[in-house]
Design a protein around this nucleic acid. Sequence first.
DNA 1: CGAAGTCGATGACATTTGTCAGTACCGGCC
DNA 2: GGCCGGTACTGACAAATGTCATCGACTTCG
Lengths: 196, 196
Amino acid sequence: MIRLLLADDEVLIRGAMAALLDLEEDLTVVAEAADGETAVALAEKVQPDLAVLDLEMPPGDGISAAARLAMPVVLVTRHARPGILRRALSVGVRGFVPKTTPADRLAEIIREVHGGRRYVDQDFASFALSERPCPLTDRETDVLRATRQGMSIKEMAPAVHLTPGTIRNYLSSAITKLAVADRHAAAQVAWEQGWI
Amino acid sequence: MIRLLLADDEVLIRGAMAALLDLEEDLTVVAEAADGETAVALAEKVQPDLAVLDLEMPPGDGISAAARLAMPVVLVTRHARPGILRRALSVGVRGFVPKTTPADRLAEIIREVHGGRRYVDQDFASFALSERPCPLTDRETDVLRATRQGMSIKEMAPAVHLTPGTIRNYLSSAITKLAVADRHAAAQVAWEQGWI
DNA sequence: CGAAGTCGATGACATTTGTCAGTACCGGCC
DNA sequence: GGCCGGTACTGACAAATGTCATCGACTTCG
């Protein structure tokens, strides 16, 4: 019997998943959480064999929660962003599947991961293969991140410890690299690619 | 027996919901769709008693699909945006619940709506009471919508049939009304409020 | 050591954007 | 009729933004 911890911020979905996984005779859901913090705390208490986490769980993301869990982790996500997969694997996530996976398939994947193997969804894998390596430098990602928070160049200057002129250079460089029209679009693209 | 049509773009979730609702002895899922178009087409063919739609289904939103369905509709959504509720009710949606609703509660709501009543989640209702009336004119919402697509002023000019100068005036007006710094922030706020 | 590359910065420049004032037309309302 | 709000435009101005050339300090590599 594989003992599972389930974390997702949407009760309807979490409950439905829990019910379906419980139907599998070798799986049992022993704990549920609505956010990463609770998941980590619960995991220490009940010591499940495996954790199934939603990637998008405000506050914070599922990856940082996954990094703090000792047991194998399967991440479930709504929309794939290429770079995310790399980040997830680097913190030790063992399974990575989209929410477009049927529940019985998810059960199989849980068994595989529990058996010591890794599983990455086919679409994500080919997505990752098509992944452009991030062309941005550290500073460029910094200013794009700040841009995405809605900051103006003046506002982000103290936050990133750069002069406004330098910030404009990095933004200009990023805009060119990503072949877009302005910094907002650049930040958008970089986010979609999982680079920031 | 209440015959249901279920539409959600995430198979994992749709499948889980279908399975859970099917467990209820007076409910049966007779059709599933992954987008609004398919939902409308399927509904005409199988004539379900009631439709359960996800609000966020690319391409297009659940509201426009709901408007084209003859049978009662229950909308399920991830995150509430105040103005959306008003729009949903105005196109005849009879139930409005968040994805944080337990499945058995959803089943009850489906029965109530099928029985002719309306149901709106408590949180959404109080959310809607706190709703600011939309201060934007039609043209202002137009240009904000275009802004949210990432268009520059020049680009949106032909799309909204206005001169760049006029567009700037509307944007400036919207920025002032919403008390934000630039058009991107204005578009963001307007979207969060469900105004665009 | 010298060449090449990166990082942070500066100044100049053109473009885009936000703001403001003013004009004009239309429809509804007292 | 007069008033008001929404629509549509123009011109002018200041600020923010995107682009480019260049510079110095530093590291890395041959």
